[in-house]
Computed example of a mutant assay.
Amino acid sequence: MAQIRLKNVSKRWPNFVGVDNFDLTVADEEFLVLLGPSGCGKTTTMRMIAGLEEVTEGEIWFDDRLVNRLEPKDRDISMVFQSYGLYPNMTVYENIRFPLKVRKVPAAQHHDLVMKAAQAVELSALLDRRPAALSGGQRQRVALGRAIVRQPRVFLMDEPLSNLDAKLRVSTRAQIKNLQHRLKVTTIYVTHDQIEAMTMADRVVVMNKGVIQQVGTPTDIYDRPANTFVASFIGSPAMNLIEGEINGGVFRAPGVQIAGLSNRVSGAVTLGFRAEDASLVSGNGQLSAEVYSMELLGEATMASFRIGDSLVSVKSAKSYRSEIGDTVHAAVPAGICHLFDHQTGVRID
């Protein structure tokens, strides 16, 4: 397989910076997810790794080989896109086989390689069908089978689940993760869906405006977001962020007073906490506000409040009920809180 190193890689156009000083090493056999909103540079980064975009500055290495000037066909990669890109006149068997023909793999090896790939993506019973006779999930599995059939050193996947409905996304992402674990191929996966990133990645690279915001395991970025952008992007719901003042270890904002915080910080800050870490209480709490909305989630009830310009959510038991406009109280212990610089948004430790 391959270790991939991006050394201070940038992609610039005359009036736009797509990727700025991207510096990262992807370990051999790692499943790395590039995560961020549309336009953040994640797909551009993947296209530079693939050789589909020219690097403006920096170097891309596959193990000990500089690949900046190599054509995509010479990088030994396989790509899976949002659009399946299947040949409608070919059967599933022929679609999976096609890369072997293009790369002039000896014909005697084709059948065994196709059958092995088809078995890996659970398509052995559908090899005689054409794409029009397949569901969206089955078509995406054909695209996966076509990517793995020639056993590349690197998989590159660009939002491969975006065209699937919610139920299929759940099952297909589990299959992709399991497949990558079994094949042990270095994989770079691009998505804007933080749930995909959290459930699939060994490590996540959170990007915004072409710049890396944080790199870490899903647990790292969920529990210790590096800044307010990461905090607001990761989690469902995202971390609550409240602007206020802290003095003497006490944070204050309209309807909020939380004691026991750091005495080393004073002045304007942004305080964050996760909805599931707080709780609704019958007596006084650190937060008091009118209910803005109530949502029954099945396993829990989500209550939301307006605190200044922020919408703040707290999870409670599924049996909890309250009416919009009721004043309720929430316990927000100091130990669950995060502090961020009011101006830069950077985490304060």
Results as ranks from 00 to 15, higher is better:
Arg5Ile: 02
Asn8Tyr: 11
Asn15Thr: 15
Phe16His: 15
Phe16Arg: 12
Val19Lys: 05
Val26Tyr: 05
Glu29Met: 14
Glu30Leu: 07
Phe31Asn: 05
Gly36Gln: 02
Gly39Tyr: 12
Cys40Arg: 08
Lys42Gly: 11
Thr43Ile: 14
Glu54Met: 13
Glu54Cys: 11
Thr56Trp: 09
Asp63Met: 03
Leu66Tyr: 07
Asp74Ala: 03
Asp74Phe: 02
Asp76Met: 14
Ser78Trp: 07
Gln82Tyr: 08
Tyr84Val: 12
Tyr87Thr: 10
Glu94Gln: 15
Pro99Asn: 12
Lys101His: 10
Lys104Gly: 08
Ala107Tyr: 12
Asp112Phe: 15
Glu122Ser: 13
Ala125Lys: 15
Asp128Val: 04
Asp128Ser: 09
Asp128Tyr: 06
Arg129Pro: 09
Gln138Phe: 04
Val142Thr: 12
Arg146Tyr: 04
Ile148Glu: 01
Gln151Val: 11
Pro160Arg: 10
Ala166Thr: 02
Leu168Ile: 11
Leu168Asn: 03
Val170Leu: 01
Val170Cys: 01
Ala174Val: 00
Ile176Met: 07
Val185Cys: 09
Ile188Thr: 07
Tyr189Met: 12
Ala197Arg: 00
Ala197Lys: 01
Thr199Lys: 00
Met200Ile: 09
Ala201Cys: 02
Asp202His: 05
Arg203Ala: 08
Val205Met: 11
Lys209Asn: 13
Lys209Ile: 04
Gln213Ala: 01
Gln213Trp: 00
Gly216His: 06
Thr217Trp: 15
Tyr222Gln: 00
Phe229Met: 05
Pro237His: 04
Leu241Met: 04
Gly244Ile: 02
Gly249Arg: 04
Pro254Lys: 07
Gly255Ser: 14
Gly255Trp: 06
Val265Gly: 06
Val265Pro: 05
Thr270Asn: 10
Gly272Leu: 00
Ser279Arg: 01
Val281Ala: 00
Ser282Trp: 03
Gly285Tyr: 00
Tyr292Pro: 09
Met294His: 03
Glu295Phe: 11
Leu296Ser: 13
Leu296Lys: 14
Leu297Ile: 05
Gly298Tyr: 12
Ala303Pro: 03
Phe305Tyr: 15
Val314Asp: 03
Lys315Glu: 08
Lys318Phe: 15
Ser319Met: 12
Val328Ser: 05
His329Phe: 14
Pro333Tyr: 02
His338Gly: 06
